[in-house]
């Protein structure tokens, strides 16, 4: 399984145009090297989620903040454990614990150049 986020293909753009997916701008270094600050990514809120996917989630303590992290595992009780790819520069489930599935907003399906 590759950790990289693929570049958007035509079908991703179609999803964006028909609002089946939406874009977000990445800020910060916690997902380096997979994502860098300034990258633009496409979020699919309906995509099924598997460990290893990069997801957009609500910060458990800051309701207005949306965070991008990798879903590293799904715990036996169904909660999601998130971590940054750059462990030295990431605040994630190691700090705030696992998050509820309801707080996951969508899956990062592509990078837009």
């Amino acid at each position: 399984m590759s950790n990289g986020i693929p570049l958007a293909r035509p079908r991703d753009w179609i999803k964006l145009i028909f609002r089946r997916a939406y874009g977000m701008r990445v800020e910060g270094d916690s997902m380096v090297p997979s994502l860098r600050s300034g990258d633009r990514v496409l979020i699919d809120p309906k995509a099924s989620l598997r460990p290893g996917d990069v997801v957009l989630a609500r910060h458990p303590y800051k309701s207005s903040v949306r965070i991008l992290k990798r879903l590293s595992s799904i715990e036996p009780d169904g909660r999601f454990y998130l971590s940054g790819d750059n462990l030295d520069g990431s605040t994630d489930s190691r700090t705030f614990g696992s998050i509820s599935k309801a707080d996951v907003v969508g899956k990062v399906v592509a990078r837009l150049k």
Partner: peptide, 21 residues
């Protein structure tokens, strides 16, 4: 066009709560 679209995107945070590193 894609640049134009991208400019409307909101920010998703991928950093630490404190100053990194």
């Amino acid at each position: 066009l894609t640049k134009r679209i991208s400019e409307t995107f909101e920010t998703a945070e991928a950093h630490c709560d404190g100053p990194c590193g």
